[in-house]
């Protein structure tokens, strides 16, 4: 790990489903809860919408940690989207860890629209862990090396939008 700049703040991206976690985050605001400002929430309709490629891109472009959050199993607004997310992300998380990514940097959490406290606790805990790990320096290089055929899989840094998506139906 490189020497950490004292002013360094981790960049943490959270993909939150509109119906549960995003509204849970709104509720945390309504209750004036406090959590680290490092978190940036990206709203998606459903956790099943999160393509693993977004997570790869986030790490490649400089995020230090990525959260994927959705409704509790069984509560998905779209019936089964979070189950797809769960299976995809669990397989994908193992792949990321194989490439050398610290497990704490990528987490999947189920937070309902009423669980403002759980949202805050998750963010506090996650940001703390990512901060302790320091900046993510793996970047595209180690991902590509770890994957071997990373370039063909479309994991390279020059990856353009609309390129072939590496994770597909086999993850369901």
């Amino acid at each position: 790990m490189s020497v950490v700049d004292e002013k360094w703040e981790p960049t943490v991206l959270a993909f939150c489903c509109h119906w549960c976690t995003y509204s849970g985050a709104d509720l945390a605001g309504l209750n004036r809860m406090n959590y680290p400002a490092n978190i940036r929430v990206l709203r998606v309709p459903c956790s099943g919408r999160v393509n693993p490629q977004y997570v790869l891109t986030a790490f490649n472009k400089g995020c230090d940690g990525v959260l994927v959050c959705g409704c509790h199993p069984g509560d998905c607004h779209y019936v089964s989207g979070n189950y797809y997310a769960k299976r995809r992300m669990m397989a994908f998380k193992r792949l990321l860890e194989y490439t050398g990514l610290e497990p704490e940097r990528f987490q999947v959490r189920w937070i309902s629209g009423s669980e403002a406290g759980k949202f805050r606790d998750t963010v506090v805990d996650f940001c703390e862990k990512v901060r302790a790990l320091g900046p993510y320096t793996g970047g595209a290089v180690s991902l590509s090396e770890g994957l071997g055929a990373g370039a063909e899989l479309g994991v390279g840094a020059e990856l353009g939008v609309g390129a072939e998506l590496p994770q597909g139906g086999d993850a369901q």
Binding site: C46, R49, Y78, G81, Y84, G162, E164, L165, G169, Q172
Partner: peptide
């Protein structure tokens, strides 16, 4: 509009309008 299909699509043909 859940978008589950977009991730399942291997050739990247399926996309979700607005997201």
């Amino acid at each position: 509009g859940c978008g589950a299909c977009t991730v399942a699509c291997k050739p990247g043909a399926m996309d979700l309008k607005g997201f």
